[in-house]
Design a protein around this nucleic acid. Structure first.
Lengths: 304, 304
DNA sequence: AGGTCCATGTAGCCAGTCTGCAAGGACAGT
DNA sequence: ACTGTCCTTGCAGACTGGCTACATGGACCT
């Protein structure tokens, strides 16, 4: 019954297998398997069961993994209680963000942390499908994620810190027939060629909702995940796109038209594993993140 | 940051030193010292400080030890969550009780547990001064302790399960001038020679309270901790004593007279460390203990 | 000043755990 | 139906980490 072993069990659950868990934990599958075997022997109850060529946790294993979260939280709380008697929190914080938020946030975050002694920030851009964001919390302390309006909540077990809401606008090229307009309604977009993200990625459902208002299925010409690329393609007149108002890169000539009649936006949030959230450094970094978010919100006139 | 290391820190705090903690943990002082050094290095804060030739926890160390209790509780809760998916709780439970309770409780407890597969009960009689009972919880899962009426509560951090209250009666020999009486008031005992327990032991303050009612300081002839010995001496006419009604050994001719006008009694309670209390076997044993206690209470007509 | 007790270093041993490799199943495609 | 691939698991070997035994250095007491 070791802290590392419990951590391993949780990784096996969240990653859904020995090999994947081993990758996250920087171990070999053999080591993970042996830890599981040892833990099972100690508990006297089977914790895992084979399913196909993979592995799944039994009810007992799930119960133990759930309880292991509380253990990890208690441990980090203990660490924090100790660090509280120290001048300032220190350590390394790993932060991931999806591309557009990364561009907006990472530079300022690094600026803010530059003056903190003993604090190292490791940034990484990770843009994944909506359902895969929570899993990133195994590899990062803070995961900046986004979620379209109306999407389901994040699964329980992950701590969510709201950062800001960002409206999605319709981006058109300077030469487009609607380029002179400031606002646009979904009905006027029925025949447009769309540039949108890959299936399953966070803003896709919003386009579906907009299209539903126009009556017809949207005509999707290209699937581009990187908003910078998408913006360049819009600028060149290869289609229109639904782009976030604040984080869309300034690109000469691209016009952003406000959508009327349908709430189109996404929520940007920080995702943390509860135990990681207890670390004082992590909490401090999240604090800076929320400050930055408030700035963005404010500068944007609190969105639409 | 290991579970064993945190356990060590707690032992150092509760035992008040490296050597004592090592004894409780079945380790050498050197091992304990090294664990402390490692933990201190990891935390980056001094956790202990020298005081005289001994050792004391710093505020940071105390905070960590406090938090470590929650960790231990979470761990045992995890273990219990897992055992819940098993047919029945198993393991070894170490129980201590002071002499008279041991005599009353241990045989029946062992009877009750005899039928449980996989459960081993290790009994030990430990009669210590009032203030030392909580420390026993480091060495035993369940500590049956007693505490006179009106005594201070047990310190925080120890879990208390009430078992029963036991009135204290005045024991006299058959030839004593009061032997025919059923009740007695403190005032009538002013000139008696008392046989009582050693200073600091649980029923001592009750005698002081009784004597206070009689006006004069009690004349203490002998200090005997073992109630069986005390009873034998009372029977032989060497003094009178304040003895618990239910657990006083049946001794030919000794009369128990009820005290009037002053509440004289002791509370018998089970003391547990919070993490130990989470173990399902332990909880089950405590359950049997409380049942036995209810029987005793009932058979005694709920005391006075 | 000597004796005793306590905490703390140091050397060496031992155990637990990880890596690397091999084997056994299970699914998918030919 | 068979082969190939993927995943988990078992086994031998290396290694890191922790513990014991012993020695050292203070602090209290007589």
């Amino acid at each position: 019954m070791d802290l590392r072993t419990l951590e391993t069990l949780r990784a096996v659950r969240s990653q859904g297998g020995v090999t994947a868990a081993a990758a996250v934990l920087h171990l070999t599958p053999s080591a993970v398997s042996q830890q599981l075997a040892g833990l099972t022997a100690e508990m006297g109850v089977p914790l895992t069961e084979r399913v196909g060529r993979g592995l799944r946790l039994t009810p007992a294993g799930t119960a133990l993994a759930d309880a292991a979260v509380d253990v990890a939280v208690a441990v980090e709380r203990a660490r924090a209680a100790c660090q509280g008697h120290r001048d300032s929190p220190v350590g390394t914080v790993r932060v991931s963000a999806f591309q557009s938020a990364a561009q907006l946030v990472f530079p300022r975050l690094l600026d803010a942390v530059a003056g903190w002694d003993g604090v190292t920030l490791e940034c990484a851009d990770e843009d994944v499908a909506l359902a895969d964001f929570p899993d990133l919390t195994d590899r990062f302390d803070v995961v900046v994620a986004h979620r379209p309006d109306g999407a389901a909540d994040w699964p329980p077990g992950v701590r969510v810190v709201p950062l800001f809401r960002e409206p999605l606008d319709v981006a058109v090229s300077p030469g487009h027939r609607l380029a002179g307009r400031a606002e646009i309604s979904p009905e006027e977009l029925a025949d447009e060629a769309w540039i949108t993200v890959r299936e399953g990625f966070p803003v896709a459902p919003v386009l579906a909702a907009v299209a539903a208002r126009s009556g017809a299925a949207p005509r999707i010409a290209h699937r581009i995940n990187d908003f910078t690329v998408a913006t360049a393609m819009v600028a060149a007149g290869h289609g229109i796109s639904l782009l976030p108002r604040h984080t869309t890169p300034a690109f000469p000539g691209v016009r952003l038209l406000r959508l009327t009649g349908v709430p189109a936006g996404r929520r940007v949030e920080a995702l943390l594993r509860p135990d990681r959230a207890e670390r004082r450094v992590v909490a401090r970094v999240v604090g800076v993140l929320t400050e930055l978010a408030a700035e963005i919100d404010h500068r944007a006139g609190r969105g639409v």
